[in-house]
Amino acid sequence: MQESGIIIPVRLTRSKGESVIRIHGITKEYFMGHAVIQALRKVDLLIRRNEYLAIMGPSGSGKSTLMNMLGCLDTPTTGTYEFNGKDVASMEDDELAAIRNKEIGFVFQTFNLLPRSTSLQNVELPLIYAGLSRNERLIRAEQALASVGLAERMYHKPNELSGGQRQRVAIARALVNNPSIILADEPTGNLDSKTGQEIMNLFESLYATGNTIVVVTHEEIIARHARRVVRLRDGLIESDRENIED
């Protein structure tokens, strides 16, 4: 474990822009038969614009639950969650869908591309749900694909692409709606280390151009790319510190 960072209280983290995510006292309980499982117990977290954050923790630590919460895929049992100042903790399904569509870009470990659709169609999908016209969709999807270096692969289907290319399509899809935050869940988990490195470089440049990135991972080497690392254990934040770069 890398212990070289300085422990900084949440409120003092780099004040580069206003807060995107403000979580206070969040808990999440699951019912497994008769047993109640506390996946998260009183978690506070503040994420500001243009942060690059890694969430780490062993399995069962609650990091997946936290990520689902951050991604508005799930709502907390108790606690408050403000996304860009809006209270999302009490939102209905379809309101959450609108937030996910416009404010959050998901990158999954297994890419989750639609197998029978081309890269362009995959990247277009969030724009369809956003109700953009066909022309606008095409322009923006092409731009997004070009920005991840796939201008030549627009009409390829996922099975005609390498793993790295697939993940780049997924990143283009995450970027295409200009989200407030990019949420990546083990983005390199299904890639070899060289390709994984390429993807991390891509995240690096996205961060450099002003994007806010949250990466959930259990690999130190991936977390090292982030500027701030939040470690979870047993549903609590164990540590939250700045990364010292080499």
Partner: peptide, 9 residues
């Protein structure tokens, strides 16, 4: 995936 990307019910 579709729901994550913003598909409504």
């Amino acid at each position: 995936t579709r729901k994550a990307l913003g598909a409504r019910r």
